[in-house]
Amino acid sequence: MEVEQIAAFLAIARQGGFTRASEALHVSQPAISRRIRLLEQELGAPLFERVGRGVMLSEGGRAFLPYAEMLVTVMRDGLDAVRDLHHGHTGELALAFVGTLAGTGMTRRLRDYRRAHPGVRLRIRTATSDGVSELVRRGEVALGLRYDDDSHPELLSTRTYDEELVPISAPEHPLAAARHLTRGELAAHPWITFPPRTGETREPYANALRALLGQEAADTTEIVPIDSLTAQISLVEAGFGLAMVPRSAVERELNAGRLRVLDVAAASSSIPVVLVERRQGFQSGAVKAMRLALLARDGG
């Protein structure tokens, strides 16, 4: 059994087909097929079943998948350990985080890290909270930042900071100058927020908005689903509705008077931003330095 065979198996399982797997690995499709054929011969069972124009894991493939992921992850750890021994804080560091965090104070931490460690090439990926955890668990990234804890036994969750959320409007919005707004007044206007995410156990922004409006009002309020925090802020600024967003993401707009925080009793809430890492994973010096930077208690 060879590493290339395991890599081919995982690529097909994740990409859903031989052609896409060959493109992802930059290897010809006949070479991919040969690797799988040899692997199946060694295991004595088929790993995939053809479904339409793609493939799906067979019963044997589903049984083999977690062990294949473990093999590749351990191999990556071994390579990282040797490289770290000889090169220290150099090489590549892969980090995943929820896309909305790019508009918060976390970006400053990444900037400071790059300045302090110019020899490290930072590779960034974005995903949903569940997706971030999966990338970490499979060893595709060293660290991840997501919303809320992950209870998976292979992962360690550490809270980094709480991201404050505030309700905002354009300065000329009818509610911008109002005092002590009620839930009924808030629910009478459109709210811009993220659409439901498939597979996510909780959508933190939607939960915060529901808590602000109340269960009954939230069910009748007009919701404008926009899957981009930057677009949400722009639409609010243009007067298309209200939104619940991280305060750190709109500091410039608030200071410039382009947005207002609505006056609602106990309106602000927060979402815990959590660092996830593999419990038994190897951490190079570069990864340890990143971990310290992300956990620094500087107010986010």
Rank of each mutant, 00 (worst) to 15 (best):
L71F: 11
G17C: 01
G78D: 09
Y113M: 08
A249F: 00
L213Q: 11
S234N: 13
A256R: 08
I6V: 09
G44T: 01
A21F: 00
A116P: 09
F64M: 08
D149H: 10
A178Q: 11
L156P: 06
G103M: 09
E163G: 00
F9L: 02
H152L: 10
L39K: 04
D150M: 07
G300A: 11
F194A: 12
D112W: 06
L275H: 02
G239N: 03
T73Y: 09
V274Q: 13
Q5M: 06
T90H: 11
F48Y: 01
A7S: 11
A21G: 04
L39G: 08
P225C: 05
F282D: 11
A31D: 07
F282H: 10
A170S: 02
G241H: 03
P174Q: 06
I271K: 01
V136K: 12
R20M: 13
E200L: 05
G17Q: 00
L65I: 01
R20Q: 14
F240E: 15
A289D: 14
R125E: 13
L165H: 01
L65R: 06
P204A: 03
L110S: 07
G52E: 06
G144C: 12
L79F: 11
F64V: 02
G119Q: 10
S284E: 06
G17W: 00
R197H: 12
L43C: 08
R297N: 13
F48G: 04
T73K: 13
E92C: 10
V3Y: 12
A81L: 10
A286H: 07
A24M: 05
I223M: 13
G61L: 01
I192K: 06
P246E: 13
G44F: 03
G131P: 02
G214Q: 07
G91A: 04
P30G: 14
S169I: 00
D150V: 08
A63E: 14
E2M: 11
T19M: 14
G281D: 10
D150F: 02
S129Y: 03
N207F: 09
H152G: 15
S268D: 12
R138Q: 14
A218M: 10
F48K: 01
A206W: 06
H180W: 13
G60R: 05
L65M: 08
G44H: 02
A249Q: 04
E69H: 03
D112E: 10
T158A: 10
F194P: 14
V82D: 14
L181K: 05
R159I: 06
A102W: 14
F18N: 14
M290C: 03
L295F: 01
E59M: 10
L79D: 13
A188L: 07
V74A: 12
G99C: 07
D77T: 01
P66R: 06
A188G: 10
V287S: 15
P46C: 07
R297T: 10
P204C: 07
G257E: 05
A206E: 15
E42I: 01
